[in-house]
Computed example of a mutant assay.
Amino acid sequence: MEPINYLVQLGGVARTAQLLAAGFSRTDIAHLANKAVKQPRRGIFMLPDCRPDLAAAIRHNARITCASAAGHYGLWLREPPGQHHLACNHGHGTGFIRHRTVRFEGHPSLPLAAIEDVVLHAMSCLAPPASTALATSAIRLYGVPLELLKDQLAGDRSGPALKALNQLDLRAESIVEVDAQYVFNANGIGFETQVQLPGIGRVDFLIEGYLIVEVDGFAFHSSREALRRDLGRNNASTLSGFAVLRYMPEHIWFEPERVVAEIRAALSRRPGVAG
């Protein structure tokens, strides 16, 4: 393999030591300079289209973590961070958010923190529901043990992070469901999640045994069959005496006050409730 192809596999950036460890000679590495490879600093080789977070990690002898690692692992995070989140045990460098405590072995070839450290850093750094959505997805997608996270945070004076972990509902199947739970909890709305209703199927939320709330993802009604199925569910819900409210992610994220007001209005109209 050519060293430039290996550089591509690494995301477009590497140190001389990493290239040497992969079996390339110093002559091979020297030839990279003739192939449009940049050297922002001695000992660092970078392709023009290198990912900025990878470049920052290599430059600062650090690993990508927290919100910056979400895209690499496919974790749930609504908005990319404004600054790079890097894990390092030194105090050098500026212009990034520093996470000092590294507990687990990172990625074998990329400057990427282990998934466990990514979650632990996020729980102590990000506010809910961003932190809880990221943690929920790591547990669901990678099997990160919840008890491991709690144990690791127990001695770090991480009361808020531990409280958030204790409130995780791992039945959530998407980031918007986690965010909806946060909105409901913040406004004192009690709910059940992923409830199986006879003749209707599984619903995202059931509130006070009467109101079904569905939060539809980006693929909602992506086919005629999906539309027909959901119309049938809506009709079955009405015929069974339930009220139904449906929301897109944008409603939960940008109009939570409207969502809460509509839920309360629907609950006030249920049978047996005085007007």
Rank of each mutant, 00 (worst) to 15 (best):
R228S: 13
R202T: 08
M248W: 13
W253L: 07
E225L: 14
V244H: 02
N185D: 15
V144S: 07
E173V: 00
H121P: 04
Q152S: 12
P145N: 07
E250Q: 14
G155E: 08
R202M: 07
N234L: 13
F184N: 00
V244A: 05
G217T: 08
I175K: 01
P129N: 11
F254P: 00
V178P: 02
V176G: 01
A130C: 05
A133Y: 06
M248V: 13
S237M: 08
R157T: 08
E250H: 13
V195I: 14
A180N: 08
L197D: 11
F184Y: 12
Y182C: 07
D169K: 06
P160S: 12
F191V: 00
N234D: 15
A127Y: 06
L146G: 10
L120P: 06
G209Q: 09
S174Y: 03
S174H: 04
D179T: 03
M123L: 15
H251N: 15
Q167V: 01
I212Q: 05
G241C: 10
I115W: 11
A114H: 15
V118W: 10
E173Y: 01
R229M: 09
A138I: 08
V119S: 03
F254E: 15
Q167L: 14
S131G: 06
V119L: 07
R224K: 15
R233V: 02
R202H: 07
V183A: 07
G209D: 14
F205I: 00
P129D: 11
A114M: 05
E173I: 00
L149Q: 04
E225C: 03
D156N: 11
L231D: 01
V118Q: 12
A154W: 08
G155A: 09
P249G: 10
A172F: 03
Y247P: 00
F218W: 14
S223F: 09
G201W: 14
N235H: 12
V118F: 10
L197F: 11
V118T: 14
P145D: 10
V183P: 04
D179V: 01
A138D: 08
A186I: 00
I212S: 04
L162V: 10
A154I: 08
T193V: 02
L120A: 03
G159A: 11
A161F: 05
P249Y: 13
A113F: 10
A172K: 03
G188H: 07
R246G: 04
L162K: 09
T238K: 14
E116Y: 05
T132W: 11
L165T: 06
A154M: 10
D169H: 09
G143Y: 11
V118Y: 12
P129M: 07
L231H: 13
S240D: 06
I200D: 13
G199Q: 13
R228L: 15
L206V: 06
I189F: 01
A135W: 04
